[in-house]
Design a protein around this nucleic acid. Sequence first.
DNA 1: TCGCATCGCTAATCCGATTTAGCAAAGGGA
DNA 2: TCCCTTTGCTAAATCGGATTAGCGATGCGA
Lengths: 341, 341
Amino acid sequence: MSRRRVTLADLAEAAGVSRTTASLVMTGRGRELRISHDVEQRVLRAADELGYRPNAVSVGLRTGTTRTIGFVSDTVATSRLAGDMIKGALEAARERGVMLFIGESEGDPELERGLLHAMQDRQVDGIILASMFTRTIKVPKDIGPAVLLNALPRPASGLPSIVPDEIEAGRSAARVLLDAGHHDEVYVIGAGPTLRDVPADSVAAVERLIGIQETGLKIAGGRVCPDWQPEHGLAATRALLAEHRPRALICLNDRVALGAYQALGEAGLSVPGDVSVVSFDDHPIASWIWPKLTTVALPHYELGRKAVEVLFAQMAGEVEPGQVFRVPMPVRHRESVAPRS
Amino acid sequence: MSRRRVTLADLAEAAGVSRTTASLVMTGRGRELRISHDVEQRVLRAADELGYRPNAVSVGLRTGTTRTIGFVSDTVATSRLAGDMIKGALEAARERGVMLFIGESEGDPELERGLLHAMQDRQVDGIILASMFTRTIKVPKDIGPAVLLNALPRPASGLPSIVPDEIEAGRSAARVLLDAGHHDEVYVIGAGPTLRDVPADSVAAVERLIGIQETGLKIAGGRVCPDWQPEHGLAATRALLAEHRPRALICLNDRVALGAYQALGEAGLSVPGDVSVVSFDDHPIASWIWPKLTTVALPHYELGRKAVEVLFAQMAGEVEPGQVFRVPMPVRHRESVAPRS
DNA sequence: TCGCATCGCTAATCCGATTTAGCAAAGGGA
DNA sequence: TCCCTTTGCTAAATCGGATTAGCGATGCGA
């Protein structure tokens, strides 16, 4: 039986002033509207004693701003990836005194509409539309202030986007090998060797390949995987080993790399002694396997954080329409790359 | 420049009735308060044409209920585990037309207080207090309607708890081995052999061991790991293999099992030919490694879902104070167990 | 014809804040 | 002494709905 919340009216009565005065003091507009120092102190003291906290719902109704934002993802919340993205968004939000609604659309436009409505009905100040993997999406109409996270608008929509810098990541991966002296005999697992050999809809595959090529690293060959799962990595690498003897592999993500490790092991090849491996994503398994995998990290946490930052910047009118923010993907140097002997 | 939202007043004007009447119709109380079928239809048609949706903030202020619940975890949102828990909660919430606020306390009581306040200020209807791993927690005062997810109240608090049924999970794991004919030469990695050989604060370790023992399975020995990470599993299994020749291992989670796989491989022992392995959690890696790991799954999704269900049941007064709900942990039969030869 | 119940709808209040407009008292200049 | 500012505070309106109390018209029985 918790006692009723303390309202502004209670506070005003306790301090012996009007609700107006109490409100002015609590919102820091006392000076501006000539409330005496004496009265101000009285109100503040009473607020402290009563433990007064303004009812955010009421404030939301009156002011139209709720200090709340919505985070809608296709199915992001379920994957590990998502966790960190949400965590980043959460912390950036907390720093601004903002709460996060989350919702998952499961890729169903109908569900998505419902979620967006539910959030708009609750007067969210803005919305983050997040995608599980980097891709282009159609932006719903009348969405209000919003940013796209890990996604780009298909027909240009004017909304800002936050995406990982996959091209630079490709360059980084290639440079790791080049720096270790691997200039040839490098194969790609998961896509390639050309830009047309990629899984459907995969922005990441294309951009990573572009980045790799830009460094001048010569790709000796590649194997596409329909999906970047361990078993496909295993099969692709087995097939590759049947015909070639690579000195280095670029795996297009860590799960594929896990499969590659297995295939290399079967073939009696050691990592990194016989074959160096570099990968992408920095999934937790990258540091759970032996040798620990050198990989270019997807900056999930930073992406989430940046999304909130950009959302607020946008609401402050500081963002160009359609501006794209690319978040750097850092290299995690571990144990799967050795100098070319 | 989206046009202003349609309000009840707009709707009333369009339908040529009072706001009261419009409200009554929209809340379904038209019959009860004798609004004629004719007028009712007029209002409904106008609502449809204008696309009227009630402002949830206003409704929240007036009725005191916001169709919103808070999900506060220590650090759950970051781990994979969390994702599914949130997903389960999210879906159960959506079925009830409820939105979810999420927050992470990072285990910091001060932060937790702040989050709970922020949620209470926004008039959440209830709160789910979630923990990353099963443990006992101190429940904050004046929290209002709430349930504990993956946690038990330290001083009894009257709040209901939802936890995985770890004891039954222990039984299940043991039974998997017993059914395959493994009655002896079974070792535990991660804890044991006695109930005092467990990592600090680990409810899961204790209960899993209890369950195992209850089946009558004879535990030949065990190795504690300070933390259930792959490298500790690796070290513990190496140490075990230096002294014993197990025919089966019960790993206390999948990450530990990953380490055990590595150690067994080094020792030239094959899974499941030489050694059967059964584990707990059903982490994604369990099906990424070879042979795929037979494991007793932590039902994250179900836990999240149940939390929302219990929260609503509790608000409806259908839950005993302090009631504990144990969610079954299903066995995922895969390829790491073979009959004892 | 009067009184009373029923029908169908609406005026007014409330939720808990913010914000605008303005009032009473004190001070200052002519 | 009168008028005009300035000071310090408050009454009242507002946000968008839900809810309570009640009003006018009609029907019915006596």
